[in-house]
Design a protein around this nucleic acid. Structure first.
Lengths: 216, 216
DNA sequence: CCAAAAGTGTTGAAATTACACCCATGG
DNA sequence: CCATGGGTGTAATTTCAACACTTTTGG
């Protein structure tokens, strides 16, 4: 069966290609960034960028496919990943009917200090032109991240194992896009018991050393 | 191509049947209920119940498929429906590889006073044996409903156009499974401005008439 | 007049907000 | 000694939780 006939058959039989896409966020250099790869599939998608992703394999579920494709494209493993939303518009991929189960993944700067395989980091403030419906997927990932930031510990996945309170607050502010009061921030985060100081460990800088903390 | 060979081909080509399932909730007779249909597909699924659902059509997205199948099975239209989660375990349907985009829908008792087409209502406290992974899907629907109840207006989709504050509170308590203080409940819901009294409209009963309200 | 649900306020505790100065270090 | 970011407390406000009696109606 040649590919064209195959696609026709697929359509007629009411099945679709099932894929995953991953919105991988990190905060680096005071920017919330997302990992993108190059997309160049003429005639529809030329000279664009897109999310890392790919087809769901025969004997894996969508979660496993997301982890696998993320590793293949970014060489990152062992990070937080969660299902985001499923995109199914018949026209979302002009080449064929494709359904994408989108994921959101979070990496700290410590997780990404490896050589990256196929792509790079883009600030969400300066995204390049994107293929398919990937702009929409990123928007939804951003909403999810912002929403969860205030009522969960999800920020734990964006900081290295040890971090200062200022670093933690910076990440909050960068993601939410507004400032918060230093004393109130520290009061709340310490009262919540989700972090604890690493006794005797300090971040040494040009000024006063800062206590390092870790998530409990 | 016979069916067996077709399924083999599908598997080999790494595509899957894309379907939707709908967890349709209502609160009736002091119970949170879910709509289920009969499932009888030997040899794997005999004498069971399952969620209303079906295949995604060639020219529709998953939302549209969910609305369509919901109408076909329940004769209900125009109600709240939202995507819940996508289930993709390779073994979730023993007959073939099938991915299901699950939806949660909410109906008020006023929405369901029609003849039902293919199924009936079951209290979530007394669910019958369920086919596929539908028990898991219902559990997730329940979590979503409970979660959203406290920080959104989602309850608006479970009450008729006009309702008393006691009816509203009853629905909250039935879904969350615990009592709340009458004065505090009324204070909070009135302060939130999401509902307003229908002036001059009262629910007449054997005792003191109750003011009717509506969502703004 | 009785049963049944409707309706209504206050008080204390807890959480949240606003706000400004001293400290420790490296250069 | 100075520039830089680290670190700390209090008071006012708002929100939340607990709690009990009177009202209106139909039967």
């Amino acid at each position: 069966m040649d590919e064209k006939k195959f696609r026709k058959t697929i359509k007629d039989l009411r099945v679709a290609v099932a894929a995953i896409d991953v919105v991988l966020f990190t905060v680096k250099e005071d920017q919330l960034c997302v990992f993108l790869t190059s997309v160049d599939r003429p005639p529809h998608y030329k000279n664009l960028h897109g999310l890392p992703g790919g087809i769901i394999g025969v004997n894996e579920n969508a979660d496993q496919a997301a982890v696998r494709h993320l590793k293949e494209k970014t060489n990152i493993t062992g990070i937080h990943i969660e299902q985001l939303y499923t995109f199914s518009d018949p026209e979302r991929d002009q080449r064929s009917r494709a359904i994408s189960i989108a994921y959101m993944a979070l990496a700290s700067v410590a997780d990404i200090d490896q050589k990256e395989v196929a792509g790079g980091w883009f600030s969400i403030k300066k995204l390049p032109p994107l293929a398919y419906d990937h702009a929409e997927i990123i928007t939804m990932g951003l909403e999810r991240l912002r929403g969860k930031l205030t009522y969960t510990n999800i920020v734990a996945n964006l900081v290295p194992k040890q971090f200062t309170l200022s670093e933690l607050q910076d990440i909050h502010e960068i993601i939410l896009g507004d400032k918060s009061d230093k004393r109130n921030f520290r009061k709340k985060v310490l009262a919540s018991q989700i972090i604890k100081p690493v006794v005797g460990e300090f971040k040494k800088t040009v000024h006063k050393p800062a206590q390092l903390y870790t998530f409990s």
